[in-house]
Design a protein around this nucleic acid. Structure first.
Lengths: 224, 224
DNA sequence: TTATTCAGGATTGGATACATTGTACAATTT
DNA sequence: AAATTGTACAATGTATCCAATCCTGAATAA
């Protein structure tokens, strides 16, 4: 009888997925700015992999719309215009309204308790003005709420769109005024969730996303 | 002086894209039913290509959500549940409402004339009960209207969702009652477009998509 | 009979080699 | 000098090769 421990069975992701995530992260954070050309041989070498898995990763990024494939020229990181940001938030807002009923319906007291824990961590980050921490907490907070839905496909659309704007989240959070207001709204959201107040949550969330969009647009416009 | 004709410069797509489209088509039409395993060597041979481009095509399908990747087992065609169809139509409807204002704003008399040409072709197909032709005309009709918008990202979401339900369009059109009603509504849509009646178009489109959803759901439920 | 082991084939993961295409720039021609 | 051609280099497109893993099923042991 085998009495040892089970090895995690080398549940390693394929290397192509590692490459995919690394590249995606680089694009989203702006490390790879729009217009950058991704030359296969260069990045294969840099990631210490061969071209085959790297190319598979590029094909995924292509379908994500993060890079553009130019016939026989390879891929180039795509640019984001103000119109893009506008649309992304529009989509996100509309999709959010579609899932909120199911979120209210499915949220448990345990979920709310967990959200409150997150909020208290965010309180600290807010007080200490730790924008990096706040950015990732924000994302976790919204993600947690969204994932309460059972509408997998709508959720996927939201997730996709959010990925696009992650690259701007740092910029958005830099605004002190908005940061404090948003933080307050996050608290209100959990209160409304606890009360199962769909109407109130819809209004607040819609407002919250609109404000976020405005700040984002302003920040991006300023940067130019 | 060169006086001949210009060759189309062999603007051939990469083989991986051909493979991608072929496989996508096979999945969408149901030729490759849900649950089918796609073995790389088998399909590479069948398409007379090597595994490399085929794998790139599979990675695209993976991001499309049409196939599922199982660790070290390759890809399997994903199944569609009733809930999926429900969500797909919900997304499509919501996104449609978001672009209609821009559609009304941008539609030209030339566009309307072209839509009427399409409609007259659809009249014939409708009269002759040529469901295949009607299915592709339907798609072309809706596609033409949607593409009048300048909201590229929202359009992309719509297109993505529509791709998913293409596999059911034949089923939907099979319903004689719905077919005739839908055909009539298509005529009304162009009338409303011509009048630039946003309100009317929103109502009609929303109703149209709802009816389409119902028929689709009924057809799929029956098939089991 | 039933459980187990182990060999062999099948399949995916990844790397490498070769082919094709495109680009840059120098050489040449007008 | 301007335009054109040619050539070398660089990058992508595709095929093939090898390794690692998984599955199957026969052979064997309990």
């Amino acid at each position: 009888m085998y009495n040892g421990t089970f090895e995690p069975a080398a549940e390693s992701k394929p290397i192509r997925d590692v490459a995919y995530e690394r590249l995606k992260h680089a694009i989203i954070t702006g490390e790879l700015p729009a217009g950058s050309r991704i030359v296969e041989t260069v990045y294969a070498e840099q990631l210490h992999i061969s071209r085959t898995p790297l190319r598979e990763a590029l094909r995924k990024l292509e379908r994500d719309g993060l890079v553009e494939y130019v016939l026989r020229h390879g891929v180039v990181v795509r640019a984001f215009t103000v119109a893009d940001i506008e649309e992304i938030f529009t989509i996100r807002n509309a999709m959010m309204m579609l899932i909120l009923p199911s979120v209210i319906e499915r949220v448990s007291d345990k979920d709310i308790a967990e959200l409150r824990v997150l909020l208290s961590e965010m309180d600290v980050a807010q007080k200490e003005e730790d924008c990096d921490a706040l950015a990732s907490f924000n994302r976790a907070f919204h993600s947690k709420i969204e994932h309460l839905t059972d509408k997998k496909r709508i959720l996927r659309v939201i997730d996709d769109q959010e990925e696009y704007i992650t690259r701007f989240s740092a910029v958005t959070i830099a605004s002190i005024v908005r940061r404090s207001k948003a933080h307050q709204e996050h608290h209100e959201m959990v209160d409304l969730l606890e009360k199962r107040d769909l109407d109130g949550l819809e209004k607040l969330m819609s407002h919250h996303l609109d404000e976020s969009k405005m700040t984002c647009l302003a920040a991006v416009a300023n940067r130019k």
